[in-house]
């Protein structure tokens, strides 16, 4: 990484947009990692799905036009930063997206990540399977000690990429983390299961996917934002990764044919009034559901 730092420490560092042009030659220096251990956070940029949604010509628009860092990935990054503070990991964030996604990736640096890579020129309509194959090529080249990522993205809610990536890498994985500790050279993950919580211990390297109930991701401070402008961000075209020619032409195995508004629930009855009226309405409502046993 030394070369990349040199490139960023001169004149260019005051003009962070120029970092965009530090191309793939820097990438091959990843193998020259310092002895620092690294957590790689895989992040995605999504629309702000918590803003108001509208339809126009079969596509979806959100009232906030600015994309956001996927909330689940933000939790993954927060956890990586906490682990970094306690155990000295370097935190590197990788994102697949267009060059414009560097703005979102810059926020991850402002939160405190040390370095970032934006993988550009992804195949059109990439699905989880395509994303996982690209990330696998990147991870194999990069060689982090752990990958931490969101358990799903807040736009599609698919939640497959983590498991796919782990299987490509043949790494142990733990999903839906609600707590992570690093002890005795292993990651101890508390996972929320269906009806219990599991403590799972994985040696390095391993992959962890995070619930967004794990923590509250920090808001970048002004200092963090200033510092982020000097941090290295590598822009790497996917076809320059190992096996890149095949990766950049991968066809998705699933395609979205259409998006339609969810059928709205019919507007119900709203009851206001004195206590007697309210309880009466409730008794009637509960009585209409046989499973409550109220009507019988």
């Amino acid at each position: 990484m030394q070369h990349a730092r040199v490139l960023n420490s001169g004149k260019i560092q005051n003009e962070w947009t120029s970092i965009w042009h530090i191309q793939t030659e820097a990438f091959f220096l990843y193998s020259d990692m310092s002895q620092d251990r690294t957590i790689l956070v895989c992040a995605k940029e999504t629309p702000d799905t918590y803003s108001d949604l509208s339809f126009s010509g079969g596509s979806v628009q959100f009232s906030n036009p600015r994309p956001v860092l996927n909330a689940y990935d933000a939790s993954a990054l927060e956890e990586a930063l906490v682990l970094s503070e306690a155990h000295g990991f370097r935190v590197h964030v990788v994102m697949i997206g267009p060059e414009k996604a560097s703005e979102t990736l810059r926020k991850a640096l402002a939160m405190g990540a040390d370095e970032a890579t934006l993988l550009t020129d992804a195949p059109k309509d990439a699905d989880s399977a395509v994303i996982a194959k690209i990330l696998a090529a990147f991870v194999e080249q990069f060689g982090p000690d752990a990958v931490i990522m969101g358990r799903q993205s807040q736009d599609t809610d698919v939640g497959l990429a983590g498991g796919m990536l782990a299987d490509h890498l043949q790494w142990p994985w733990t999903t839906n983390a609600i707590g992570i500790r690093f002890e005795q050279e292993a990651f101890w993950v508390k996972r929320q299961g269906d009806s219990a919580q599991e403590w799972i211990d994985s040696p390095m390297p391993c992959l962890i996917t995070c619930s967004n109930n794990l923590n509250d991701p920090r808001i970048p401070t002004l200092k963090g934002i200033m510092a982020s402008k000097k941090k290295p961000m590598h822009i790497v075209a996917i076809d320059s990764l190992p096996g890149g020619d095949a990766l950049s032409t991968l066809a998705p195995s699933t395609t979205i044919e259409s998006l339609t508004p969810m059928p709205e629930r019919a507007a119900g009855e709203l009851v206001e009034g004195d206590l007697e009226t309210l309880v009466e309405a409730l008794m009637k409502g509960l009585g209409s559901i046989p499973e409550t046993g109220v009507g019988s």
Partner: peptide
């Protein structure tokens, strides 16, 4: 051909796969 809720269950997505 599968229907799955997306965008926090506000949108229905029709997904196609073959194999």
């Amino acid at each position: 051909i599968a229907q799955r809720p997306t965008y926090a269950s506000k949108v229905m997505s029709k997904v196609h796969a073959e194999g």
